[in-house]
Computed example of a mutant assay.
Amino acid sequence: MEIKNKLKATTISGLSAIAGIMMFTYGAPSKSQSAPANKCEFFEHFDYEGRSFMLHHNHVLTVGTDVQVKHEDARRTRGDYQKFVDPTWKGIISSVKTGSNCVAQMNFPGGNGINVQKDAPRMSGQFNDSAEYVSCYCKN
């Protein structure tokens, strides 16, 4: 089931920008399943509990309007990417599932970042509940 959340969405292609609405996918895989192909799923609690949202390939979610996506992340996508803003996810992402062909990138205050290449039921230490923006990149 897909539910539309009224979020600001921007498609970046050269110098053009278009506002839109983001599609979050809920009711996704069970705890034992990974995220579907071409998607990454983020959860508010350890062990894939609580609220969740999915990002598709080349999607970036920031937790505040002042967070800028790093240039190298945008370049890495080799084309268009969509940026979404939702401050309700600030400081609460604690577990991640990745599709078999995807990497979830999580960026933190101070410029630190990690690539999550397989399911991570418990983000540890400084990586738990502190992401400034997250993204999903998949190989087709």
Rank of each mutant, 00 (worst) to 15 (best):
E2R: 09
H71G: 06
F84R: 01
L61F: 07
N5H: 09
D119H: 05
L15M: 07
E41V: 11
C138P: 04
P29L: 04
K70A: 15
G91L: 05
V116R: 00
M23P: 06
G20A: 08
T88Y: 06
M54E: 12
C136H: 00
R78V: 04
N107S: 15
Y48M: 02
C40W: 02
R76N: 09
M22A: 10
G113F: 15
N140H: 12
S100G: 10
K90I: 02
Q82E: 05
E49Y: 10
E41A: 11
I92K: 07
T25V: 11
F127D: 04
N107F: 10
S16P: 03
D66S: 15
G111C: 07
I92E: 02
E41L: 08
G27C: 07
D47A: 11
M54V: 14
N101M: 03
C136I: 01
S32V: 09
G50V: 04
N128V: 06
H45Q: 14
S52Y: 03
T65D: 12
Y81R: 00
G111H: 12
G14N: 09
M23I: 14
K6Q: 14
D47T: 09
K31N: 12
V96R: 02
N101K: 07
H45I: 02
S32R: 10
M1H: 10
M23L: 14
V67E: 07
K118T: 13
N38H: 10
N101Q: 08
R122S: 12
S34D: 14
N5C: 09
S95Y: 03
N115W: 06
D66N: 12
